[in-house]
Write a protein that binds this DNA or RNA. Structure first.
Lengths: 347, 347
DNA sequence: TCTGGCACTCCGACCGTTAGAGTGCCAGTC
DNA sequence: GACTGGCACTCTAACGGTCGGAGTGCCAGA
């Protein structure tokens, strides 16, 4: 008991590492003999058993039953990724593959989908990427086009050149000149302002002066709301969910159902991803660390991606706790950088 | 052997029907005693066994092993839906629920999602709806807005008021007047024409006269392409996939994986849905009738939905072969009508 | 401090048995 | 001739016992 978590013998660390690396392969409990063979150390199974007993006492491994081998616990994985892990630099081929895929000119939405596909394809796990979201979208421009008698097409351009359309039905036919006047007014006043402010200013003005542009301004507000709301309710793109079915620890239909339900409900997953935006760099949730029951047997490795230093979203990988962290981490890392870069060239 | 498929004794038909209705409930083979109890007929199990033997010879039922009850075959289900089925009219409450959900003002995409959710929610199976697709979209309007130095926002409005945006980088700064001129030209010439024709005409003109509006016209073509292409590659919205995990005949992880893979690949499913557009009214694929292995244990009930007599898409339900067809069919039918109606009010 | 040996435990696989459900067939009855 | 009760038969799923393998903990000796 004199040992604190901080000073586990180096040998024990090597052993834990070997055990995890072995367990990741086939998900079977690892026994002392196997470990004696596989770990580079020249030790007998008996010795290894002693060390394993120590590791068990520290809570890093546990045995499913008396005469089974040992299995890493969440704490074991945590210690592993925090202090034992040596991240292998990603091989050039994979990097090039991702770069090539993301370099093709495509819309942000398509880029996100490509990235998600890449993540799941390379790791053989599930890839997840949130849609890019600007913190404070700017008002850039609004236009109103007469469509037919009582219908006007309103177009709002936000700072990131995101465009919103909306067809509105008006009470009377509004002339092209009037529409022009309205848009001129709004554009002169607000171009470059924060969309939030624009919204507030319009609301204020509508109450003050009951101008004849109310209808137009109403629309502008509604559209601003839409952009803001569209930005508020984040969304993500998932790929390769079915890869998760390969892992027998998840193959219980009950668990699968909970997991897939969470994927389509999105709420909980989004909430979790949200926590990853604020943390800096790679974030890892192992097993029940996430706090969500359906992810108890899963881990999630995430990294935020950003353009010009502004974080636009998060991406990552979801898989069983026994994933090859040392491989997944660099993949997530690189993909985040490359996605950021790809989004940058478009703006 | 003197009996042809056409003339099965009425009693046998009643029996097949009772058997299927019973089997749908819990998916267990149905024995003669159960059937004697449940079917209204006052017959002894022995008699029922004789009739069951006939049905088996005709290929309508089969027994998984010597001393199990009988299970309907695909042919059995087929005969059932073709000739035995009495579709129960949907109860008003459900209809109202669907109507209410689809009556809220929302975009086509949202409507489709609502419909899909309704289908899966009411049937407790998976709901599927293709996005609406106009066969011959019309050109309605195009506008070009100067954004900044070398950037122009192009907006194309199609006949169904579908709007496409695209930002284009120009070689030189084009004045607002020039842009106005270009759009006026295009609008005057092409409004109301078939988008296909517009595209062809523009291409032709570009080759003939090397006008200074080439750049604008190029864009118009590209955008037309986009609308056309967007329409060509259909897509669907799926909901309630996880409901399928409740059925033990699908609970084998291997099958589940194939099914979910097909859902995310989309190709095969789309191909199947495509066949349903052309058939008129309700279409039903039972088990391996679909020709796709991953749907061997599934059935699909579909109906096309249309606006003004033009079919825009298909919707339906995917579930295990033992689904309550007499309930699913009217739900699919009604939802198709209501979705058509909902889309209509928007145009 | 490490190791070989030993007793012990537990799981999974492999029977054999049994109860239950359902069948097919036959002879008897209305 | 149509229906039924009875009977022998078959197959499955569940239970329990046995057995080998894998792995453990502990101890005594190097």
């Amino acid at each position: 008991m004199s040992e604190s978590t901080a000073d586990i013998s180096e040998r024990a660390q090597l052993m834990l590492r070997a055990l995890i690396e072995r367990y990741v392969v086939d998900g079977q409990p690892v026994g002392s003999r196997t470990l004696a063979r596989e770990a580079g150390l020249r030790l007998s199974p008996a010795t290894i058993r002693n060390v394993m007993a120590d590791l068990e006492e520290l809570g890093f491994v546990s045995s499913p039953h008396t005469s089974a081998g040992r299995v890493p616990t969440v704490q074991g994985y945590r210690f592993f990724v925090d202090t034992l892990l040596s991240v292998k630099p990603l091989d050039r081929q994979a990097v090039e593959q991702i770069r090539a895929e993301l370099e093709v000119e495509q819309s942000p939405k398509d880029l996100v989908e490509s990235a998600s596909g890449m993540l799941s394809g390379i790791t053989q796990l599930a890839g997840i990427v949130t849609l890019p979201r600007h913190e404070h979208p700017l008002f850039k421009r609004v236009e109103f086009l007469p469509l037919s008698e009582n219908r006007v097409l309103a177009i709002l351009v936000a700072g990131n050149d995101e465009v919103q359309n909306r067809i509105l039905h008006t009470e009377r036919t509004i002339s092209a000149a009037e529409l022009q006047q309205a848009s001129n007014y709004l554009n002169q006043l607000f171009t470059g302002k924060d969309l939030d402010e624009v919204r507030a200013a319009l609301l204020h003005e509508m109450q003050e002066t009951r101008s004849n542009m109310n209808e137009m301004m109403m629309t502008a507000i509604r559209m601003a709301d839409q952009v803001l709301e569209h930005n508020a309710d984040e969304d993500f793109v998932l790929a390769g969910q079915t890869n998760l079915m390969e892992f027998h620890e998840l193959c219980d239909v009950e668990k699968l159902r909970n997991l897939f339900d969470a994927f389509s409900t999105k709420r909980d997953i989004l909430h979790l991803l949200d926590q990853c935006v604020h943390g800096e760099g790679i974030q890892i949730f192992i097993g029940d660390e996430s706090g969500y029951r359906m992810l108890d047997e899963c881990s999630m490795v995430t990294a935020p991606y950003s353009v010009d230093g502004q974080v636009l979203g998060v991406l990552g990988v979801i898989g069983p706790t026994r994933m090859a962290y040392e491989q997944v981490i660099p993949i997530v890392d690189v993909t985040a950088r490359l996605l950021g870069a790809a989004l940058n060239t478009r703006e």
